[in-house]
Design a protein around this nucleic acid. Structure first.
Lengths: 143, 143
DNA sequence: CCATTTGGTTGCATTATCGAACTATCTGGT
DNA sequence: ACCAGATAGTTCGATAATGCAACCAAATGG
């Protein structure tokens, strides 16, 4: 049985719905922060601080959208803007201590959600699933 | 190397961004109809006609949201509502000829998009990717 | 026959996204 | 040095999508 484009399309569509990616205001992980902020928070937690433009690239959003997301993080007291060293145009976004704490909560919620999912995948298939997802991401990614 | 929840979370996050699931007004497949309508259209094309409540289940959306999506399809002239046979409350959503045509266009666009993605996946991995995606969908789906 | 469940619709509130217009800064070529 | 063009951000306006609550109509089951 060889897979064709339609099968793949359908599998992706199913995944999107099953995972609840339709809900923009609630992360699939159950925390109460908006999805985009969760993505941004995750990236920021990874590096502690990031150029805003780097966030644009990682999140694949318009700079205007990204600017707003950062503004929201700042408003929550989770991040602060500083001017980027060596570039007067740039903004450096840095997590505050509360931001780091929020990121830890988010990470815990994610672990919970993905942990139970992982348990439902036969142990000897887990690496294959992860690998497949990575392959698919690269395949679907347009440059 | 065994996968853990964090790896899975990250892989999913990457996929979501790479595939462009953030854009609500344009399907990842490049057609100009809104994402939700595309999903609905796909399901309707599959069966020709569906109870609206069935659409609610398949799309995993609120009945209000679904009602609106159907209204939009009707407004485009792609679907029509009829009262469900044997149930005076129910609505039967049926694709019009133009609706079927739109569905074919959508299917073609999807094939194009997923076809090139598929080409980028090594041939001997394709079945594995599809299988993994299905496994993941089941794992992530909460009852 | 009435209470409850089920299927739908509409109004209200939130959130998200993009593109365009505008400002500020940096960079490369002359 | 200087100016044109690229780059980084912000703000504004328009669109889309979603959920919840309130409400109505039809079915169902004691």
């Amino acid at each position: 049985m060889s897979s064709d484009a339609a099968d793949l399309q359908e599998a992706v569509a199913r995944f999107v719905r099953a995972f609840g990616l339709h809900q923009p205001d609630r992360t699939p992980c159950g925390t109460s922060i908006p999805t985009s902020e969760a993505h941004a928070l995750g990236e920021l937690a990874r590096d502690g601080e990031l150029r805003q433009v780097e966030l644009v690239h990682r999140l694949r959003l318009e700079k205007s959208t990204t600017s707003r997301i950062v503004a929201q993080l700042v408003q929550r007291g989770w991040a602060e803007r500083a001017s980027a060293p060596g570039d007067g145009r740039g903004v450096l976004v840095r997590l505050t201590p509360q931001g780091h704490q929020a990121a830890r909560r988010l990470a815990a919620a994610r672990r919970a959600r993905f942990g139970t999912a992982l348990e439902r995948i036969p142990a000897d298939e887990r690496d294959a699933v992860l690998r497949a997802l990575t392959l698919l991401t690269e395949a679907v990614d347009e440059p």
